[in-house]
Design a binder for these strands. Structure first.
Lengths: 352, 352
DNA sequence: GTGAAAGCGCTAACAT
DNA sequence: ATGTTAGCGCTTTCAC
């Protein structure tokens, strides 16, 4: 049972000092492992143990100016990509002795700006933020932030903030080229919303890879939609009229939807149509057949963002004055959904 | 650009007081919306705005004894079940003006106890914890916790703590009965580790439903394994020798593994074998065919846990002295993976 | 209505 | 080696 101190609540260094018959300064020193005489140490430690003393982190923060808390703000924890980041950041934070505050912004700009501004309340020592769009207001808030910030995402040049970005242009190209190399020639593209940075990048990678492979850009093979399995299924169903032999999707949820639509249409994967997604989330391995997917390094981005932030927090003057930007390279993870169809021959020869 | 105050850092009420030519007490009153003369209010508000003042939450917490932070401790954010809980808790916390601290315990008992004990550091006003096993040490730590705690999980009677539990006995029975009613007679069970509370409950529900349906318990149809797609696939592959016509799995990951093993063995789902999982996570809809799954109400459990906690924090004296326990009812979500096989006839008549 | 001052629990400079 | 004391930034009596 926890013994109560004088504050009507928990024991403080004062309770310990009284009980041990020493000053509060000695208590503080002993508790912080600074020098003290052997018997003083013993008295204090015994008293602390008996009282079930736990140092008040708030008081310590007020004094020290640091909370040992980090904040991660992302659009939606429901998305596996952000889960991967949370996990990586949490791990890094824990290892460095920091707690992690989570903030869901629902991709609302005002909310993101609020998080940035609230750094002024000194609740956390630093922030990793993952905005989906970057407005001028963001850049402004980033510049005047009251604590170190690392952005996961692509910032305009000269933004003056540490950032970690994925290379989705290359990532998308990787997938398209792979589909080409495994014999696909009519490669459809189910993209997410067009007005986001990642949306544009993926479109760019798709076009570039097509050109490189000598394939023409066919408007009828491209569609934009919201993220989500349903959306992916709907979009793919519409695409079928254009007779694709592969469907490349801007994320795994869309790809799962595509797979569903193809199954429903009686088309075999990868026999008739290959499917590839992006993010390489847990979902990719869940599908049947398991999905080929481009790993954009969510975990790695989270890890690096945390590293950058912690590094700056460790550095005495706040670290380097020039902001650093790192790019995480994409990685194609090939699974059964894009196996070459050559061995089995054309679809009409084996389908009932 | 943020103007700097005297602390070498951010502006404080002192900076504002000086600039506005009033006392710090007046500043505090104005900022907290207490009574003040019109021109005082104006002077203070102008000064605050000009300085870009943001109140220091740490100082406020030290004074007020509340941090407006909640902690959620769960085994692993990688599991969709906990993601659902985080999401629900985060939403409730945000709505009530609380921030959310996330803590991954990796299901390590020492870590869970550490979280409980660390409530003494006053970093958060309350805790929702989701332990996978409950030891005596847990009960002890729960009883002496320095702040309100709500447990998501099943506690022994008289534990003296608020809790929210799932009813996995009924949930498992729901699935088994459904399989029976759709014509299955050899219902296999891929369970998680045997030494956890949920593991035992699910086994109990499985046995009870079998008995109720008049089916015998066949040892060869039951297997325990770790959670995970791979484990599920391996376990199911081993089960095949016992010729099941349905595989019920203790969670969706296992069920996806089962589906993979069945596909690999050339068995049709649900034509030859039906598959059902538990949790009704995002994964259930990702599979092909989409999986029937028992929703154990992760979101609802998170929501209710947060409610219980917030209620206690709102109550003046810490709320009701008698702990409350609520149970969230399971719900069977039927999808294609358990469609009755009657219409299509026995497997040997249509399989090549 | 407003200001002076106490104090939340802690650390650290200074004095002994 | 140990005690005294001054704050960290804020809220809140208590006088005026």
């Amino acid at each position: 049972m926890t013994v109560r101190g004088p504050t009507g609540g928990r024991p403080t260094i004062v309770s310990i000092a009284e009980r041990a018959g020493v000053s509060i300064a000695s208590v503080s020193r002993v508790l912080n492992g600074l020098g003290a005489r052997r018997d003083t140490v013993e008295k204090v430690e015994r008293a602390a143990a008996e009282l079930g003393y736990v140092p008040n982190a708030v008081a310590r923060s007020l004094k020290g100016g640091r909370t040992r808390q980090l904040t991660f703000a992302m659009p939606d924890i429901g998305n596996p990509v952000y889960v991967a980041m949370v996990r990586a950041i949490q791990t890094a934070a824990k290892a460095a002795g920091y707690r992690l505050l989570l903030h869901s912004t629902d991709a609302v700009v005002a909310d993101e700006l609020g998080v940035l501004r609230s750094l002024g309340d000194r609740t956390s020592d630093g922030l990793v933020i993952c905005p989906i769009r970057i407005t001028d207001a963001h850049l402004d808030a980033l510049r005047t932030a009251a604590a170190p910030v690392v952005v996961i995402g692509t910032l305009p040049h000269g933004a003056g903030v540490d950032s970690v970005r994925a290379d989705s242009v290359t990532g998308a190209a990787l997938a398209v080229r792979h589909l080409y190399e495994t014999g696909r020639r009519r490669i459809a593209f189910v993209n997410g919303p067009a007005d986001t940075v990642p949306g544009r990048s993926r479109a760019e990678g798709y076009r570039a890879a097509l050109a490189e492979c000598g394939l023409g850009y066919d408007q009828r093979l491209v569609v934009h939609t919201e993220f989500g399995i349903e959306s992916g299924a709907g979009a793919t169903a519409r695409l079928l009229a254009a007779r694709p032999d592969a469907v490349f999707c801007a994320n795994d949820q869309l790809a799962l939807g595509a797979a569903r639509a193809l199954h429903a249409a009686g088309l075999a994967i990868p026999g008739d149509v290959a499917v590839a997604g992006m993010d390489d989330s847990a979902l990719a391995q869940a599908g049947w057949p398991p999905l080929t997917s481009v790993d954009l390094g969510s975990t790695e981005r989270g890890r690096r963002a945390a590293e950058l932030l912690l590094e700056r927090l460790r550095a005495p003057g706040g670290g380097p004055t020039t902001p650093r930007t790192t790019t995480v390279a994409p990685r194609l993870v090939v699974r059964a959904s894009t196996a070459p169809r050559i061995p089995t021959g054309p679809a009409h020869e084996r389908n009932p």
